[in-house]
């Protein structure tokens, strides 16, 4: 297979077939909580793409460069979560200082991401599957793109649903979960591509 095929295949697999929210159940909290409007959902999606891609690169480098050679792999979880928390803090400070427009667009969403399990999940998946550095970054990006796609679709549906006559008991959380379930069925269809 040529490089391009591998890249495309990885992106499709991580973003659509193994969608992080709808088939892996990671990052459900922001998916259910910050999906009321397309605008905020897009902001959240962009922030997640940024953080997961950088976090995948950093954790993969740390794992390959330090933890694996020194046989410290049992420290994976502790090191990764510490790195992610620090990264989010730094990203926030860096953006505020050097790129105010980008900070205004993403800033509010950054602190929310530390406890988003999709970030830690992506880093751990890369290690579990023993991906190389480049592959880790690529699959991290694909995973995050999958999250962004899912949350934006969800926000679009919820905007349309805002004035729909939903039975009283199903308003709020239950209808959101039902939509997510239907989306999950739709995304299962991508499985046949593989």
């Amino acid at each position: 297979m040529s490089d391009i095929t591998v890249i495309l295949l990885t992106l499709v697999t991580t973003a659509l077939i193994n969608n992080v929210v709808l088939s892996q159940f990671m990052g459900l909290c922001p998916f259910l909580g910050v999906s009321k409007q397309i605008k905020t959902a897009a902001g959240m999606g962009a922030a997640v793409i940024f953080v997961i891609t950088v976090a995948s690169a950093l954790t993969s480098a740390l794992y390959r460069g330090i933890l694996l050679p020194l046989e410290l792999t049992y420290l994976n979880t502790i090191v990764f979560i510490a790195v992610i928390a620090a990264l989010v803090q730094f990203a926030e400070m860096f953006l505020r200082k050097f790129s105010p427009p980008l900070y205004n667009a993403l800033g509010v969403y950054l602190p929310l991401i530390t406890t988003n399990c999709a970030v830690l999940g992506a880093a751990l998946t890369n290690v579990q599957k023993d991906y190389s550095f480049g592959m880790s970054v690529l699959s991290g990006f694909g995973t995050a793109a999958g999250f962004a796609i899912a949350i934006i679709i969800m926000a679009g549906i919820r905007e349309k649903m805002a004035h729909a006559p939903i039975p009283k008991a199903f308003r709020g959380m239950p209808i959101t979960l039902l939509i997510a379930g239907l989306m999950a069925i739709a995304f299962m269809g991508f499985g046949s591509i593989a």
Binding site: C29, L32, G33, P111, L112, G172
Partner: peptide, 15 residues
């Protein structure tokens, strides 16, 4: 509803 799941109130979600 703003604090749906743990998500809506995410600004405080760091614990």
């Amino acid at each position: 509803e703003a604090s749906l799941a743990c998500g809506g109130d995410c600004s405080k979600c760091a614990g």
